[in-house]
Design a protein around this nucleic acid. Structure first.
Lengths: 108, 108
DNA sequence: CAGTATCCATGATGATACTG
DNA sequence: CAGTATCATCATGGATACTG
């Protein structure tokens, strides 16, 4: 996460990565394994998923827990900071619905 | 604006462009001329500003009004849809401050 | 299972100069 | 004043194959 000129840019730059918002949204429902997330989103390549998860971890929004088992098991969960932005994401979600209504409304 | 798999992606994809959030934030303060916006942001090239404004206009968030004068005068204002997302941007702004606090707190 | 490695295509962004 | 045109660069995203 990098500080920008304006806090709103800081925020956007942190969550604008491919499907990042949706990933966080899913983690609000509970911890998830890597494979679960790939299956839940299903339109993201493994390489991209790995990248987004690493960035979210580096930005302090999610935790990565490795269970020393065979076969390997890795779970992702939200950090306190990640949980704190839940209201923001919910508001954005509603904003997205507003936009989609607008798209449907302007049949061109 | 393009409908995505999840409304939150629709929203993010619409506002993630370079400084778009800040541009909208400024327009909440009142209508602005092209040159004013460039001066207000000052870290964005004219080419980029033009591009962001065009995209915002195409997405139905802002209006572009040309005054047939010499020298030319163009003003940008928010549409109803643009005004409707004010609460969302305010929430994101607060989220950005939260993130910046987190950055300052983890002195590494 | 949970990733990495590699290569490639595309889009985003930037600097500079020019125009009605 | 409010852009546009052009060129160049860098980040983002994707497909596929491989690994502990």
């Amino acid at each position: 996460m990098k500080k920008s000129y304006c806090p709103i840019d800081t925020f956007i730059n942190t969550v604008k990565g491919k499907r990042k918002g949706t990933i966080i949204l899913h983690l609000f429902q509970g911890d998830k394994r890597y494979g679960e997330l790939v299956k839940l989103l299903d339109d993201i390549s493994e390489r991209m998923m790995t990248k987004q998860l690493k960035e979210l971890e580096a930005d302090g929004l999610i935790n990565r827990t490795v269970f020393p088992e065979v076969p390997p098991r890795v779970e992702y969960s939200l950090t306190d900071l990640g949980r704190e932005i839940q209201p923001v994401l919910k508001t954005m979600y509603r904003g997205g619905i507003l936009f989609e209504k607008h798209i449907d409304g302007s049949q061109k």
